[in-house]
């Protein structure tokens, strides 16, 4: 029973960054901007949050910095992908590379090491997992409502499905997408801050560990819809929680090697994705220039 409670608890905790990343990705992808840059955005905001706290010792400034860094990252990615009319996936991968190179470079210049920010004391971290979780759920609900009921949602969906419908009305679909990308970055930023200031104690190298891609998988699995994507995050998070639970355990005298246990969430994600063919729900103009 204790084991079960621990499992649920860790699944919920793990789902938090996934949900933020998936909701951010949802905003961006529904506008037609294919987003494989979620991983980079997570890392960027996790680093910005932790670095700010390391310098100022103020977790709230860290939170703000994480969200701001995410938004700036979203702006850079959005402008680069939309204005250049390049393939969004190429741009996303390049963005991830850029972040992967920039963080250790800056880290060394500021903190003298490339591995990460200094350890942060518990007193200067954001320790309430529950608040992050509630925020993520609330965000999903707001997104669900806003996509249906607001003019923002209407324009977002139009930009993702048929950008020319906006262009002929004198509305720039490119601008709608760039705005979406900024908002996406800010939302993902909350996930990044959760990683470095709540679940971790500072930034460590590559700390997102593929969560950006799993969130993208969850978003696709959830058919680009907020409620379903949120549930998919919980599902994928349970696979990760299972993995944590299994680490170091042995079954019938056979010690499970950790390297095998660690692949559980990735295999589960792949298989679940294959089980539900949801790609037909993709926004129609995704990854097409406007």
């Amino acid at each position: 029973m204790d084991l079960f409670v621990a499992f649920i608890e860790s699944a919920l905790r793990v789902s938090i960054p996934l949900m933020f990343a998936a909701y951010g990705g949802l905003i961006s992808e529904r506008s037609g901007l294919a987003n494989v840059a979620l991983e980079g955005l997570l890392l960027m905001s996790a680093f910005a949050g932790a670095a700010t706290v390391a310098v100022t010792q103020n977790p709230w400034l860290g939170l703000a910095a994480g969200i701001f860094a995410g938004a700036v990252g979203g702006l850079v990615f959005g402008v680069a992908a939309i204005k250049s009319r390049a393939d969004h996936i190429v741009m996303g991968i390049a963005f991830n590379m850029l972040v992967a190179g920039l963080i250790p470079t800056i880290c060394r210049a500021w903190f003298g090491v490339t591995g990460g920010t200094p350890q942060l004391d518990r007193s200067v971290r954001l320790t309430s997992d529950a608040s992050f979780f509630v925020a993520a759920i609330l965000l999903g609900a707001i997104l669900f409502w806003a996509l249906r009921a607001t003019s923002w949602g209407l324009r977002l969906k139009a930009a993702g499905d048929e950008p020319s419908a906006l262009t002929v009305q004198g509305v720039s679909a490119g601008l709608v997408r760039i705005q979406a990308s900024v908002l996406c970055g800010a939302v993902v930023g909350l996930g990044g801050v959760n990683l470095s200031l709540c679940q971790g104690s500072g930034y460590i190298r590559e700390m997102a560990g593929g969560r950006g891609f799993i969130a993208l998988a969850a978003l696709i699995f959830g058919a680009w819809k907020p409620v379903q994507a949120g549930l998919a995050c919980l599902l994928f998070a349970s696979a990760d929680a299972l993995q944590m639970l299994l680490q170091g355990k042995s079954f019938f005298d056979f010690a499970m090697p950790n390297s095998i246990v660690q692949i559980v969430p990735y295999v589960a994600t792949l298989l679940l994705l294959a089980l539900r063919r949801s790609t037909m729900n993709a926004p129609k103009a995704i990854n097409r220039p406007v």
């Binding site: 003019s151 209407l154 324009r155 969906k157 139009a158 499905d161 048929e162 020319s164 419908a165 906006l166 262009t167 002929v168 009305q169 004198g170 509305v171 129609k284």
Partner: peptide, 15 residues
């Protein structure tokens, strides 16, 4: 220049 997935009224209002 219509968004197929949206309703008639949403298409008319768009923009």
């Amino acid at each position: 220049a219509l968004v197929d997935s949206l309703s008639v009224i949403d298409n008319i209002m768009l923009g």
